[in-house]
Write a protein that binds this DNA or RNA. Sequence first.
DNA 1: CTCCAAATGGGTACGTAGTACGCAGTAATA
DNA 2: TATTACTGCGTACTACGTACCCATTTGGAG
Lengths: 245, 245
Amino acid sequence: MSDEKARPIIWARPPRSARGPQPALTLDRIARAAVALCDAEGPDALTMRRLAAELGTGTMSLYRYVQSKDDLIDLMVDLTFEEIDRPAHPDWRGGLHWLAHQIRARALRHPWAAQVDAPYFFLGPNGIEFLEYLYGIVDGIGLDIDEMMRAINLVYAYAEGAVRQELAAERRAAASGAGEEEWMRAHSAYVRSLMGTGRYPLMQRVMLEAEQPHMTPEENFEYGLQRVLDGIETWLPGSGTRKSG
Amino acid sequence: MSDEKARPIIWARPPRSARGPQPALTLDRIARAAVALCDAEGPDALTMRRLAAELGTGTMSLYRYVQSKDDLIDLMVDLTFEEIDRPAHPDWRGGLHWLAHQIRARALRHPWAAQVDAPYFFLGPNGIEFLEYLYGIVDGIGLDIDEMMRAINLVYAYAEGAVRQELAAERRAAASGAGEEEWMRAHSAYVRSLMGTGRYPLMQRVMLEAEQPHMTPEENFEYGLQRVLDGIETWLPGSGTRKSG
DNA sequence: CTCCAAATGGGTACGTAGTACGCAGTAATA
DNA sequence: TATTACTGCGTACTACGTACCCATTTGGAG
């Protein structure tokens, strides 16, 4: 999660030998409990002590299953790809559209997952299955593997970036909402003073606009997504004009 | 950095009264030292004790300036927007193109900044100045404020998402590179075993491709960016021609 | 059946975070 | 000069990840 260290991939663990007591837990049970905890109370609630308590076991027992907390997070992130189903799509545009919305849905279900980076998530069983499926969407439409990668990466990049913005806005709204009187006062007074200077006329309009949004976050996401798909379409072979990248 | 708490905005602090000794430090000096530290040694190197040592002061002295480490991070993130210059652009496409590359350049300069989320960065002096400038790029081309927001958000979302992918790939490369023998062995053995199953033919092609990339990360970024700009162009009012070079 | 290697659960304790608290010193104001 | 509002900062508390150790359990070897 934080920095780099030599750490063997958790999915490549050697099989258990037959001797010794049966483990009371499984990696799966641990990871699911951790996901549930983060979903319910946010990433800060995930401590090894707390998770152990949740599972009714000793703290250090968890380390019989994972080498480190980062291992655990790899597992958790992989789990978030499990629940995404994988329908067939008649055309690439429908497929990529669906993909983007799946990425968004996953991030809304598990906001904590959008904040960690698990650089090897695609090596987990669910991650790799998901990616293999993804490439299937743009397979067989006349793109070489390089072009397929670029199409996928583009949609992925947009979806992730957009949903991060959305989550940040959500956190802001939550912070200025219920309670937090003091913060609210300091915050709005400061913003008013900024706008009072007249140096930020465009931002002023933006903020006024943001107070009464006429578009849901999803509509907003959808708008950007359609632009991205349009952009891909102008470039895809057999779509008339093709531009150089 | 992590979770929500009522915390007044650091930029709205009341002015110092005249009494008492002059402060030995300034917020600016502290924030710059922190940025330098993170740039040089990564975010994990940033501890209050270390930063204080770097500044030749006592640890707790820092708390005369910031209320918390999160405060400090807000300042740091705002600082990363300072060095971005703000040229005029003759057309929106050039402006948005430039914007995306600035976002990328900033993230490459300060990789740590792409990992934290500072939901209020735009309230800092540099952040707000930057955003005001951004909106200027798409001002006066026949868009209402809502459409302007969407155009900016789209480019921003793509750029941030893409650069996060790029940074993750960079970290992966660094991890499998020099040293880390053990990790390398476990990793590649595992990947080979996965691919040996034959269940992931597309991923196999992707990974082979990734080993000899024929596109630099920047070219890849540029490709996606052009698609995004194309997408905006097809939608912009009065953009009869979609080809722009 | 006996014994031991290999695995288990988990308690204790260590190192390192962020930071609350309090105190001594200092400079402008009354 | 006394007061007051600051300052730097040492001490200490809480909470975290996790290294280390050991008693316990189990399956297989003799």
